[in-house]
Simulated scan of single mutants.
Amino acid sequence: MSTHHPPRTSATARNTTVVHYAMVPVPALGLDGVARRSGLHPELIRRLVALGLVDAHRDASGQLVFPPSAPATLARIQRLRTGLNLNYASIGLVLDLLERISLLEAALRRSGTRSDQLPWI
Rank of each mutant, 00 (worst) to 15 (best):
S2R: 11
P25M: 06
T3W: 12
S102W: 03
A13M: 08
E99R: 14
A50S: 13
L93Y: 14
R8Q: 13
A11L: 08
R110S: 14
A106Q: 02
R36A: 11
L97Y: 06
S2G: 15
P25Q: 11
I101F: 12
R109F: 15
G52N: 13
W120I: 05
G52R: 01
S61Q: 13
R8W: 09
G30I: 02
S10M: 12
H41K: 03
E43L: 05
W120L: 08
G62F: 03
S38G: 08
L29F: 07
H4G: 08
H4M: 15
R114D: 02
R81C: 01
L53V: 09
A35C: 10
S90M: 11
H4A: 12
G52S: 11
R114W: 04
V26C: 11
A28T: 14
R114K: 15
P25N: 12
R100W: 03
R109G: 12
P7N: 02
R46I: 00
S115T: 11
P25T: 12
R79Y: 07
V34I: 07
A106N: 11
I91E: 07
L53S: 08
R109K: 08
L53T: 02
D96R: 14
V49N: 00
L118P: 03
R37L: 07
G92L: 03
S111I: 02
P71A: 14
R100C: 08
S111V: 01
P119Y: 03
L64R: 01
A13Y: 15
D116R: 10
L86P: 13
V26N: 15
Q63C: 01
Y21F: 15
A56R: 06
G92W: 09
V34T: 09
P119W: 06
T9D: 08
P42F: 04
V49K: 02
